[in-house]
């Protein structure tokens, strides 16, 4: 997945191998193939491939994975900068105009 890399050493993804049971859910859900399994434990293959979507930590039963996930939306990040808040694209019913 080298083609999906952008900046180096900025990813917040952390894997706590002590808590990992090797269930393989992170391998399954990651859309950038960041994880692999070796010796019954998950392993980060190349951390710079991560885009911080949060699918792995969300689906890790034992809480072995941490990542600070965002809304995953450029418009949301711009809104956040303009309003001085956390990134939000506000795609809710009453507020369609701000939606990405």
């Amino acid at each position: 997945m080298k083609t999906m890399q952008y900046l180096k050493n900025v990813v917040t993804l952390k894997l706590n191998a002590d808590l990992c049971t090797g269930c393989g859910m992170c391998v399954l859900v990651c859309p950038h193939a960041v994880f692999g399994i070796a010796n019954g434990k998950a392993r980060i293959l190349d951390i710079d491939d991560c885009m911080e979507c949060g699918a792995c930590s969300n689906n890790c039963r034992t809480g072995a994975i941490y990542v600070k996930a965002g809304v995953g939306c450029a418009a949301g990040i711009i809104n956040g900068i303009l309003n001085g808040t956390e990134p939000s694209c506000d795609c809710t019913k009453g507020n369609k105009s701000n939606c990405c």
């Binding site: 399954l28 859309p31 979507c53 699918a55 969300n58 689906n59 996930a69 995953g72």
Partner: peptide
């Protein structure tokens, strides 16, 4: 869909 995994915790 796989891309719903960032919102859905299967367990």
């Amino acid at each position: 869909p796989q891309l719903s995994a960032s919102g859905i915790a299967a367990h």
